[in-house]
Computed example of a mutant assay.
Amino acid sequence: MGTIRLQNIRTFSFHGCLLEESKIGSDYSIDLEVKTDMRKSAISDNLHDTVDYVLLNRIVLEEMAIRSKLLEHVAHRIISRIFKEIPSIARVMIEVSKLNPPIGGDVEAVTIQMEEYRS
């Protein structure tokens, strides 16, 4: 088993429960980690034998572009889509951070973390 990480994927999205958040948007940072068997690709040196991180990045960006009220909801969509489109992935761990959240204080980010295993 091996790990692929995409760190600090940056997006501008419109998630949040407040009406203003749906209009003005916010900056987000996403960290994604997947577990997969890398033995075949380690020998073959062939992209088709591993998980293409370009596809992982595209899934994250496309799902982040769909508005959700809760970060948990968008994270769950990302995880579900990864499991659906990439059968070789056994585990997904994701952190979604809203940078400078509108919570009435000096807070750099609010982050949710979710981890799921293929069932």
Rank of each mutant, 00 (worst) to 15 (best):
T36N: 12
T36Q: 05
D37S: 06
M38G: 11
R39W: 10
R39N: 15
K40H: 13
K40S: 15
S41D: 10
I43Q: 15
I43H: 11
N46G: 06
L47M: 09
H48G: 03
D49K: 14
V51D: 14
D52H: 09
Y53N: 08
L55S: 02
N57Y: 11
I59T: 04
I59R: 05
L61F: 10
E62Q: 09
E63L: 00
M64N: 08
A65D: 12
A65P: 08
S68I: 03
S68N: 14
L70Q: 00
L71S: 00
L71K: 04
L71V: 05
L71E: 04
E72I: 03
E72W: 07
E72D: 03
E72R: 01
E72S: 02
A75K: 01
H76M: 06
R77A: 01
R77T: 00
R77Q: 14
I78P: 03
I79C: 04
S80Y: 04
S80T: 05
R81D: 09
F83V: 07
F83M: 08
I86M: 15
P87S: 12
R91H: 09
R91I: 06
V92M: 09
V92A: 10
M93V: 15
M93F: 14
I94Y: 00
E95Y: 12
V96N: 00
S97D: 08
K98M: 03
P102H: 08
G105K: 00
V107E: 00
E108D: 04
